[in-house]
Computed example of a mutant assay.
Amino acid sequence: MTQALLALRARLDRFGVVLSGLCLIHCLAGLFLVGVLGLGGGVLLDPSIHRIGLILALVVGASTIGLGALRHGHLLPLAVGGTGLALMLGAVLVGHGSAEAVLTIMGVLMVASAHVINMRRGC
């Protein structure tokens, strides 16, 4: 891989970590604002936000973690990221509630971890 492609993959890995963090903040803020204060349910709990987030996570994850695994040969980022994405898909499928929150939080933490592992293995 050329240096330009490696740099792009590294930037996308960092973007994946940021995207996972934003998803986590969205989930926790949604639980707090809707559950505790009763505010923002229409916007924060809109199912399309979760579907779009999952699609973004799949695209960024496949392009960075998948290509990273092909380049450096380590399968741990791929296994951790794939499991995280599966948990996020499960969260979209179960609908709103505590199961969705738990699956989403576990999933985004795993995907973010996979991006970090991928960045460290790709050096």
Rank of each mutant, 00 (worst) to 15 (best):
A10H: 11
G42A: 12
G38R: 06
A4N: 12
G30K: 01
P47H: 06
R120Q: 12
L76K: 07
G68W: 00
H26G: 14
L70D: 06
G81Q: 03
G90M: 01
H115V: 04
V111H: 02
L8T: 15
L56C: 12
G16T: 07
H26P: 00
R71Y: 08
A29M: 11
G21V: 06
G21L: 10
L78P: 00
D13G: 13
L56M: 12
L75D: 02
A69Q: 14
R51A: 13
T83I: 13
T104S: 09
I117G: 01
A10M: 15
G21K: 07
S98Q: 13
G38C: 07
L58D: 04
A69W: 15
G107V: 07
V111T: 12
L6K: 12
S98K: 01
G107W: 02
F32Q: 07
L58K: 04
F32S: 13
A29T: 13
L22N: 09
L24S: 08
F32E: 11
V43K: 00
T64P: 07
G30D: 09
V18H: 01
D46H: 14
F32D: 09
V94Q: 03
C23T: 14
L75W: 14
L37Y: 08
L67Y: 02
L70Q: 11
P47L: 05
P77A: 04
P77S: 05
S48Q: 12
A99F: 00
V108N: 03
H50A: 11
H96A: 14
V92K: 01
H26N: 11
M110W: 02
R51H: 11
G42R: 13
L19S: 06
D46I: 03
G122Y: 05
A7R: 12
I25V: 15
V59L: 13
T64M: 09
S98V: 13
L56E: 08
L58V: 12
L109A: 11
H50L: 09
G90H: 05
L24I: 08
L8P: 12
S48Y: 14
G68H: 02
L87I: 07
A69E: 13
P47G: 06
A79C: 07
L31C: 11
A69M: 15
R121F: 07
H74G: 09
L6W: 01
G40W: 07
G21P: 03
G61H: 08
R71V: 06
S48V: 15
V43H: 02
H26A: 15
L85Q: 01
G81T: 07
L6P: 00
A114Y: 04
I65A: 02
L24Y: 14
L33H: 06
L6F: 03
V94N: 05
V17C: 11
L54Y: 14
M1S: 13
L54P: 00
T83N: 08
L109W: 04
G41C: 05
I55R: 00
M110T: 01
V111R: 03
A114L: 08
R11C: 04
L103T: 10
V60G: 02
G66E: 04
G41T: 05
P77F: 02
V17S: 10
R71S: 10
G81I: 05
G41E: 12
L87K: 12
G38S: 10
A99I: 03
T83D: 04
L45W: 12
L109Q: 06
G107K: 06
H96Y: 08
L56F: 07
L31W: 14
A29G: 11
V92I: 02
G53A: 14
I105Q: 03
S113G: 15
